[in-house]
Amino acid sequence: MEEHGSEGQRNAGEFLAGIVLVGFSIFVIVESLRMPQRGPIPYVLSPGFLPLLLGFILFLLSTFVLSEGIRGGGHRKLGMWLGGISKHEEFWRWLIILLMTGGYTFVLGKIPFWMATVAYFLAIFIYLRIGGPARIAMYALGFSLFVSYVLPKLFEMPLP
């Protein structure tokens, strides 16, 4: 992922973030207006009053970000920026780690917690190349024991 890219790439990122935020704020405003109006001053006391207020503030702040992105020509460079992301090695490393972590959270409840934890540690330590097989196995088993046995015992915590 681009972090210290050129000004054009930065503006493309700002533009995309602005679009997402403006869209989110409009969603919040519309949803807040649909909430029931109750009490002596109907709208002000409605459950949607603060979300509506926050939605408007978010909309205003997001337009700053969006306009900055447009001023810098971010809308023109968006396609190029998005296309270039997959060429970065960091992006793939991030994606693999994300998938491993996501997989770990997803399998909880489907297989025993200790098994998921051992599998996660083994997978990530192998991917990150922390050392030889013995070192990987030692850390994966040691950490798993700590997380899935010692701590839950200590705090009397039921496991997923």
Binding site: Y104, T117, F143, M157
Partner: peptide, 14 residues
């Protein structure tokens, strides 16, 4: 960091 951060993930999940 390659050791301590995966541990932080498992602790975070717990």
């Amino acid at each position: 960091r390659e050791l301590i951060l995966p541990l932080a993930v498992a602790l975070g999940v717990l």
